[in-house]
Design a protein around this nucleic acid. Structure first.
Lengths: 349, 349
DNA sequence: CTGTTAGCGCTTTCAA
DNA sequence: TTGAAAGCGCTAACAG
């Protein structure tokens, strides 16, 4: 089970006819710290032997693990893989990026923070549902870099925690406004309890208030396609469909789309449907779903960039709060309301 | 940037009034290796101090990193997150599981193998598009555990490489047969070049041959929704639609579904469509897509299980080859062919 | 500019 | 049953 004899700095040193410490010094890299003649010999030895530094020895010595944890509620949720992949890509090959699924549970979030505090991770990047800045205090003071991805602006305390966020509240308001501008008056929202999606409901309410329209929010069992579907089924049963339906996320919107389609209700002819997140299935839905792109890859990349800056010492001091743009992706699932509600039309455009 | 003074075995030892080596011995765990009185004192000290072993020191000493790499072509492809999450879950908390995106490129696959050989990873689990058993030889001999996930049975050489596979060839044949049994005669397939999906084409051809029907395979630009869509657009242009369309993966099938829907072709009324993989969007498509479930979570879990067995020494000797079941998930997108091809009907059921 | 030295925290003989 | 000692491969003073 042991790994075969690996090439160490000592081997390189012997081959190059210098001391092991000189090899280390050379690797540390300061411009002309090593005589160019020696440098060449070492370089040659490294190449011939195929030397690669042992990251564990290095970690032990430097107290830096060179691994960061990318914290997500559930990598199986189509929203996160892109975020993770982008974070991983921007961290480069020096760092190992491990994905940690928390399930949005406090204990799991605490566990990663604790692990980081113990030196297992140099940095934490990702989405924390339950932990607030103060929960990171010990870790941050101990030198752990933290970059969070949020759904709304954060206070930005004195702690060295960087935040990247998209203003979901504003995005929801704009999306609602888009529907309003199209002529819709009865716009209802589907959401579930808790989660960062809550601010989307606020945005919707704000926009409706502003327009002098009544906000109606239906609570689903979960932020899933099934959750969205059930709500719409109930609406259908009572024969009370609005002209536009805004779902707190794409999964719910797609569930709604399905039920509507099966009931022969035309989208967007009879009712317009919009979602949130711009996950892949949204573009594949029929009709294609109008949604808000949060650009999860950019979020991951940006957050990882901030993390990297902390890690390399390029950034210091209190945390930065950077806002990232969203985009309303207008697709086929929305259109102007029919003159008369709930009449049957063609199934798609 | 340094991590704060961590609790070490030495601290525990001092507190318990024993030597550091004794703490280590205790942790190693052999039943009564340590006097129970001592054991209690050490346990108490560990609890009070909140000691956790330093994995880097341990890795340096034991030459085992306690991290395994889960190798996937692209974590962003909806097929892989479930596989990764399952592998991660079964590896337990002792192991860190890092996801490595290879993009299916030989160099990237080589790079992980090399990294493992250098001791960065104790094990490799996942999908390798380009590397064959012999490419793992050095690593395996050096003690790296390897468990691959394949699309068809492997020879199972003398090397200690475990393989988990679903017989994609047979799955494709059965799916084709399902269509045949429904009464379809003109069944055509959409595939792209290369990849493990190739064996699916073989299975399709075999089933068609057996039924005495002509196999027609259309080559798409890529294994994507766009790739599938383009092929169907071309068919539509030539007005040559078969009664059933078998796509090499769900993404292509969904692309096909979209184009068909937009052209007003009824599915499954006019043409039946089936895919492969059972990714989430398949269940969300309209109509819901008939596909082959490969149970990627089971694949990941099983492969990780084999890896773990190697790692813990529970398994030894030549690699095991274990076949995993597939399931044909019959959903709304297929049905019996219309009496007359290509006539217009309702868009959905 | 290069080498010596002292550990980082841990496991593992080997003695006591 | 416990402890002393060595050393995994590396970095970082410090001397020379």
């Amino acid at each position: 089970m042991k790994r075969g004899a690996r090439i160490t700095q000592k081997d390189v040193a012997v081959r190059a006819g210098v001391s092991q410490a000189t090899v280390s010094t050379f690797l540390a890299g300061g411009d002309g710290v090593v005589a160019s003649e020696t440098a060449h010999r070492i370089e040659a030895a490294i190449a011939e032997l195929g030397y690669t530094p042992n990251r564990f020895a290095r970690a032990l010595r430097t107290q830096r693990s060179m691994v960061v944890a990318c914290v997500v509620p559930d990598i199986t949720n189509p929203f996160y893989p892109a975020l993770f992949a982008a974070a991983q890509a921007t961290m480069g090959s020096e760092y190992d990026v491990v994905a940690i699924n928390t399930g949005g549970a406090a204990e799991a979030e605490d566990a990663v923070i604790a692990a980081a505090l113990q030196g297992r991770y140099d940095g934490l990047v990702g989405v924390f549902f339950t932990r607030r800045a103060s929960d990171f205090a010990d870790a941050v003071r101990a030198g752990v870099a933290v970059a969070r991805i949020e759904a709304h602006p954060k206070a930005g305390g004195a702690l060295a925690i960087d935040d990247v966020f998209v203003d979901n509240r504003r995005a929801a308001a704009e999306l609602t406004q888009t529907l309003l501008d199209l002529g819709h008056r009865r716009i209802e929202m589907i959401a579930a309890a808790g989660g960062p999606e809550t601010v989307r409901v606020e945005g919707y309410r704000a926009a409706m208030d502003r327009a002098g329209r009544e906000a109606v929010v239906h609570t689903a069992r979960a932020y899933s396609a099934a959750g969205g579907a059930e709500v719409v089924q109930a609406m259908l049963r009572r024969d009370k469909l609005p002209t536009a339906l805004l779902a707190a996320n794409d999964l719910m919107a797609i569930g709604a789309l399905r039920v509507l389609g099966e009931a022969g209700v035309a989208v967007p002819g009879d009712v317009s449907v919009a979602g949130f997140d711009d996950i892949m299935p949204a573009a594949l839905a029929m009709p294609q779903l109008t949604t808000v792109a949060l650009h999860q890859d950019d979020l991951g990349a940006r957050a990882a960039g901030l993390l990297l800056a902390r890690l390399t010492g390029a950034a210091e001091g209190p945390g930065r709060v950077v806002e990232m743009p969203f985009d309303i992706v207008a697709r086929a699932s929305i259109g102007p309301p029919a003159i008369q509600d709930t009449q049957r039309r063609r199934t798609s455009t």
